[in-house]
Nucleic acid binder design. Structure first.
Lengths: 153, 153
DNA sequence: TATAGAATTGACGTAAACGTAAAGGGCGCC
DNA sequence: GGCGCCCTTTACGTTTACGTCAATTCTATA
């Protein structure tokens, strides 16, 4: 739990408003807390999905970054691409009603839901086909072992 | 329906047993018949999944190749990798009982079935999570438009 | 015989989401 | 004052199943 508690490090001479008492986390803590790798966090930043502050070169994640990360992970969980997630998050405007953002999200969600349902159907098909084949194979194996048993008896 | 009907082409001077009257197909016909691209067929060959005869340099697919292709496509449909498919097909021994092959297939199938069921569960989760979010978003949008309605009325 | 339509090989490109070095800076601590 | 740990950037590698040229050759047909 090494937050930036006491004085800023020597590098923090530029007056970044650090909002004393904010719970800033460094990349390692973030990674553990959310079950992702460092690489992932840097990757998300690279793709413009996160924008942590810096203390010198060290990334400092605010609770805003944490909220964004949660959103990203939720998006990924339901199958959105990072592109989609970014596109939706980029529309966020703290001064507006965000109606457009919500509409876009809903729109994308409907499509994604359709995709998911289609996927589900495909998987169901695959499961059926596969268990059918398995039954057949079991049959074949059975017909190959039972004759021996009949001979043995 | 352009089979190799009449005489062999000039290139077929080497005595490949063409099994007169066999329904040999060239790559284009195969592709259409099974809904794959030429590239795919060459790719499968490259990976050792298919082994069509040659008339000169032209690939000629026998019904054996067709059967193999069907198996490949079935495998792909149920989510096996080409590697897996190859591994299973490679065990085929026309002189033996193929018990080993069947066992391997069954084994892989069980694992694949488990994977599919896990995937299904994941998708179900995603669907639930997503529709939950969608409901919430719809709520937010509704709360934003109804006030106007109440003003209008 | 000219030309269009197949076929060939070879090789680089694509997508997504990171993994995995490599090489180094900075900090706290005993 | 050296160790270990955390952090940094850069950049190539991975996976899978093909797509997409490019340059050429072969074949059938008019």
């Amino acid at each position: 739990m090494k937050l930036i508690s006491a004085g800023e490090t020597a590098a923090n001479t530029n007056n970044i408003p650090v909002e004393a008492g904010e719970d800033l986390a460094r990349i390692g803590e973030m990674a553990k807390k959310y079950g992702v790798t460092l690489r992932t966090l840097r990757f998300y930043e690279d793709k413009g999905l996160l924008n942590p502050q810096r203390d010198g070169s060290t990334r400092l994640y605010t609770r805003r970054d944490k909220a964004r990360l949660k959103l990203i992970l939720l998006g990924r969980k339901v199958g959105f691409s990072l592109r989609d997630v970014k596109q939706m998050m980029d529309l966020y405007d703290p001064t507006g009603s965000n109606t457009k953002q919500l509409r876009l999200a809903l729109d994308k969600s409907e499509k994604q839901l359709a995709r998911l349902q289609k996927q589900r159907a495909l998987i169901d098909d695959a499961i059926n086909e596969l268990s059918g084949s398995m039954t057949a194979v079991r049959q074949m194996l059975a017909e190959r072992t039972t004759p021996q048993a009949s001979v043995a008896s």
